[in-house]
Simulated assay, not measured.
Amino acid sequence: MSIEEKNMLLMKIANAYGGLDMADADVLRRMMSGKYRSKDHLIEIEDKFFSNCKAKGYDEKTSREIWWQMESFAGYSFNKAHSASFAVESYQSLFLKTYYPLEFMVAVLNNYGGFYNRKVYVNEARISGGNICLPCVNQSVFNTSIQDKDIYLGFDCLLNLEGKLAHRIIEEREANG
Results as ranks from 00 to 15, higher is better:
79 N>F: 04
62 T>C: 07
99 Y>S: 02
105 M>H: 02
110 N>A: 02
102 L>F: 03
72 S>Y: 13
76 Y>L: 10
90 S>L: 12
74 A>S: 15
67 W>S: 05
124 E>I: 11
120 V>I: 14
90 S>R: 13
109 L>M: 07
65 E>F: 08
76 Y>I: 04
111 N>F: 07
110 N>R: 02
84 A>G: 02
96 L>C: 04
113 G>R: 04
108 V>T: 03
114 G>Q: 06
106 V>I: 02
80 K>F: 09
78 F>A: 06
90 S>W: 07
67 W>I: 08
97 K>G: 02
76 Y>S: 13
68 W>F: 11
63 S>M: 08
99 Y>V: 06
79 N>Q: 10
108 V>H: 00
64 R>H: 06
103 E>H: 06
69 Q>C: 09
75 G>D: 11
62 T>Y: 06
76 Y>F: 15
63 S>Y: 02
65 E>K: 08
100 Y>C: 05
97 K>R: 11
101 P>V: 01
66 I>P: 00
72 S>M: 15
63 S>R: 02
62 T>A: 14
104 F>L: 02
115 F>I: 15
112 Y>A: 09
102 L>R: 01
66 I>M: 13
123 N>T: 08
85 S>E: 07
94 L>D: 11
80 K>Q: 12
120 V>Y: 13
122 V>P: 00
124 E>K: 10
111 N>S: 15
76 Y>G: 11
108 V>F: 00
82 H>Q: 13
109 L>R: 00
71 E>T: 13
83 S>W: 03
